[in-house]
Nucleic acid binder design. Structure first.
Length: 154
DNA sequence: GCCAACGTTGGC
DNA sequence: GCCAACGTTGGC
């Protein structure tokens, strides 16, 4: 089983939105970056677990955990001309963009903030991608060691 | 709202 | 294939 970190702006989709979804499960749609797309399509497997990270908000940080319940399949929002994430370059034959389904495992009792993560950037979390300067990738792998450490911070 | 960082696009 | 222009991300 592998571990990941998924970023979302809580104004668009927060951990509470996932908690309120049917079966606490939702498709992680709207990813429009090829590197992240490749991970959704090829690398992320059923049973993998992820950190749900809130970005571009008052308190950026990890808000909880999810598990992957369905592996990569085409992102329907890219094929819907009325959808804000529509991409004219995507077709049913060549869908271009992919999603996985995620199910909420647990919302943290409190957000483990970016500040806290960063305070360990030169020691325990030296390899955590999200702490790398200028990192903008919305989906990144997390090592088991970093995963365990971040959970211990809650 | 600002701005650094970085991905994508398009002209050549 | 290069690279400048442009758009987006995301923290502050």
């Amino acid at each position: 089983m592998n571990h990941w970190l998924f970023k979302s702006e809580p104004d668009s989709f927060s951990i509470d939105d996932l908690a309120a979804a049917p079966k606490k499960t939702a498709a992680w749609d709207g990813v429009r970056n090829f590197q992240a797309r490749n991970m959704l399509r090829d690398s992320i497997k059923k049973g993998d677990q992820g950190l749900f990270y809130h970005s571009s908000c008052a308190v950026p940080g990890v808000a909880g955990l999810f598990t992957v319940t369905r592996e990569g399949y085409p992102d329907a929002t890219a094929l819907d001309p009325k959808h804000p994430h529509y991409d004219a370059g995507a077709t049913p034959e060549e869908p271009r963009w992919y999603v996985v389904d995620v199910k909420l495992l647990r919302k943290f009792k409190r957000v483990v903030t970016l500040d806290e993560l960063r305070s360990h950037a030169s020691s325990k979390l030296a390899n955590l991608e999200i702490l790398r300067r200028g990192n903008r990738l919305s989906i990144t792998p997390v090592s088991k060691r970093d995963w365990d450490f971040i959970l211990s911070l809650e």
